[in-house]
C-alpha cells in the first residue's frame, strides 16, 4: 500500500494495492450435478456474483454502527459539482458533527486537497492512474476507513467516483445514498440512469444559479426524477451561491440524528 501525506490530515493510497477478497468455495459445491443433453455435467452454483462485495459491505456497516458513524455515499456524473457541494456542506455541518471524507477518483488528489481545507480528515483513494475502477467497492472503503479514527467521527461522507452507472451497483456499507445532478446536464439523466436514481434516497439538483442563462427545463428534470423514483426528495441548490442549502442540510441533520442521536 502506498501511503503519502499529500495534505494536512489527509492520506492517499492506491486501490490496486488492496488485496481483493477472492475466496474459495469448493465446500459449497457438493450441490446437485445433472448430465446435460450436450454431454456436459451441470453443477448448480446459484450465487450472486457480487456476494463478496455484499458481505464486505455488511461488515463495514457493522463497524460503522459500532462506532456510531453515519455514512453518506455521494454519487453523480463527473462535473456536476460534487466536491464544491461537499465543501459547502462540510462547512455547515462541521460545527455540530465531527466529519471525515473518503474521496474516490481515478487519479489526482485535487478533490481531497480542496476538501482538506475544511479541516475534516480526508482520505483520497485513487482507483488507478490511467483508467482504473469506475466505482468504490466495499473492500476499498474498509481499507480507507482504517486510516480514520472512527470512534471520533459522527459523519463519514464518501465522495464516489464521478459516474452514474457503476457506483449504483456496489454497496459499500453506507446508511444513505444521494445523487447530485446539475442543470448543465440533460433533463432526462434520471431516465437514462434509472438504477442510480432508484438506489438513492435523495437528489440534489445543483447549479440552479445558472438557470437564467440556460434552456434547461427544471420541472421536466424533477418530473423525470419522480418517474424513476416517486416521492424522492429533490433539493434544488447552488453550491456556488449556497442558495437552497438549508433544506438539504436540515435533511442531512435529520438522517444523522436518526442514527446516532
Amino acid at each position: 500500500m502506498i501511503l503519502d501525506n499529500t495534505a494536512k490530515g489527509q492520506k492517499y493510497y492506491h486501490h490496486k494495492d488492496f488485496p481483493h477478497n477472492h475466496h474459495s468455495h469448493a465446500d459449497d459445491s457438493a450441490s446437485a450435478i445433472s448430465v446435460q443433453k450436450s454431454g456436459t455435467r451441470e453443477i448448480k452454483v446459484v450465487r450472486r456474483v457480487l456476494d463478496v462485495n455484499e458481505k464486505m459491505a455488511e461488515e463495514n456497516r457493522k463497524l460503522f454502527a459500532e462506532n456510531g458513524v453515519f455514512v453518506l455515499n455521494v454519487m453523480s456524473s463527473p462535473g456536476s459539482g460534487k466536491t464544491t457541494t461537499l465543501e459547502k456542506t462540510l462547512a455547515k455541518i462541521l460545527p455540530e458533527y465531527k466529519s471525515a471524507v473518503i474521496v474516490g477518483d481515478i487519479c489526482t488528489t485535487h478533490d481531497a486537497d480542496r476538501l482538506a481545507i475544511s479541516g475534516a480528515p480526508v482520505v483520497q483513494i485513487n482507483t488507478d492512474e490511467f483508467g482504473g475502477d469506475c466505482h468504490l467497492a466495499a473492500h476499498v472503503i474498509d481499507k480507507a476507513a482504517g486510516g480514520l479514527d472512527l470512534a471520533d467521527i459522527d459523519l463519514l461522507i464518501v465522495e464516489n467516483v464521478g459516474n452514474l452507472v457503476c457506483p449504483a451497483e456496489f454497496d459499500i456499507g453506507e446508511d444513505s445514498r444521494v445523487v447530485i445532478l446539475s442543470v448543465t446536464e440533460g433533463e432526462d439523466k434520471p431516465a437514462k440512469y434509472p438504477l442510480m436514481f432508484r438506489e438513492c434516497e435523495a437528489a440534489l439538483l445543483n447549479k440552479i444559479d445558472l438557470l437564467p442563462y440556460l434552456d434547461y427545463d427544471k420541472d421536466k428534470a424533477v418530473e423525470y426524477i419522480h418517474q424513476v423514483h416517486p416521492d424522492m426528495p429533490v433539493f434544488e441548490i447552488s453550491a456556488r451561491t449556497e442558495e437552497g442549502f438549508e433544506p438539504w442540510i436540515e435533511w442531512l441533520h435529520k438522517k444523522i440524528k436518526e442514527k446516532i442521536g
Binding site: 457438493a30 450435478i33 466505482h135
Partner: peptide, 21 residues
C-alpha cells in the same frame, strides 16, 4: 464499465464451484 471486475469474479466463483473430486 466494471465488466472486467465482474468477469474475474465469475471466473473465481466458477473455479471454486468445481467439485474437488
Amino acid at each position: 464499465m466494471h465488466e472486467m471486475g465482474i468477469a474475474l469474479q465469475i471466473v473465481d466463483i466458477a473455479t471454486a464451484s468445481i467439485p474437488p473430486n
